[in-house]
């Protein structure tokens, strides 16, 4: 089975976000980038499907040269092939999805895995947009996936519970935390990844349908107060919540 995984390269979760000079994106100076955490679950799941049913795993990332680091990480985890759709222009999720789906059409995998969302834009849109562009079934926010007899049975997370989903192949799956426990790349894997080639291709040009007008820090929270120490402070806390904040 041919499996593709789309992976994004995003600022580390430790990042203290500073708005950049353009007022529309973050200041990237000193920011450490990592593979999008949800995409690690996607890569892991792809490897597990391959290990069960044999096949090939290809990872794709759209972005600048720095995305190669994240592609290398996936290669080190054990994927067979990496493709960089090289492009530095800012894109909305629609135009990322358009470029990825064009590339995926050529690859013709039976399963494409995504993360549930990128932790930078927090869009949670690209995977489902690709599914729609390809006219495929989808299971988003999956925490359990089984593929057998040309069919997918999966569980996705919803508010306060789960949905059992059935879907036909080919399928788009977006991975939620809990789907699996991603492996650490082995030393051998890391060494091997260094010499594996990363194929570079130009993606379909960007055609954005949404633009960022402004980025800013959220309104700062005013300094709070320490109500007191120990259980003695509890009545005063309840009074404040009831009378001042009016939330209980």
């Amino acid at each position: 089975m041919k499996i593709a995984v789309c992976i994004n390269h995003v600022p580390d979760t430790e990042t203290k976000v500073k708005v950049g000079a353009d007022g529309k994106s973050i200041d990237r100076a000193g920011v450490n980038f990592i593979i999008n955490p949800y995409d690690e679950f996607a890569v892991e799941e792809a490897l597990r499907i391959k290990e069960k049913q044999t096949g090939e795993v290809v990872v794709l990332s759209l972005g600048g040269d720095t995305h190669k680091e994240t592609l290398r990480k996936a290669l080190a985890m054990g994927v067979d092939k990496a493709v960089l759709l090289k492009d530095d222009t800012p894109r909305d999720s629609y135009s990322v999805a358009a470029a990825l789906s064009a590339a995926l059409k050529e690859l013709a995998p039976e399963v494409v895995l995504f993360g549930k969302q990128s932790i930078d834009s927090d869009d949670a849109a690209v995977g489902l947009m690709v599914a729609e562009m390809l006219g495929w079934a989808s299971v988003a926010v999956a925490v359990k996936v089984e593929i057998a007899d040309g069919k997918v049975t999966a569980e996705r997370e919803i508010e306060g519970g789960h949905e059992k989903v059935e879907a036909t192949l080919p399928v788009v799956i977006t991975a939620q935390k809990g789907l699996n426990e991603p492996r650490y790349p082995s030393l051998k894997g890391i060494m091997a990844a260094k010499s594996k080639p990363i194929e570079e291709k130009p993606p379909a040009p960007a055609q954005n349908r949404a633009e960022v007008v402004e980025m800013r820090k959220p309104p700062a929270k005013s300094a709070g107060k320490i109500v007191g120490t120990g259980a003695d402070a509890v009545p005063e806390l309840v009074r404040l919540l009831h009378e001042e904040a009016k939330v209980i």
């Binding site: 973050i26 932790i119 927090d122 949404a210 402004e214 980025m215 800013r216």
Partner: peptide, 14 residues
């Protein structure tokens, strides 16, 4: 909100 709420963006759908 973006970056899990560490920043906010104003978006115009064109």
């Amino acid at each position: 909100p973006v970056y899990a709420g560490k920043a906010q963006t104003d978006i115009k759908v064109t």
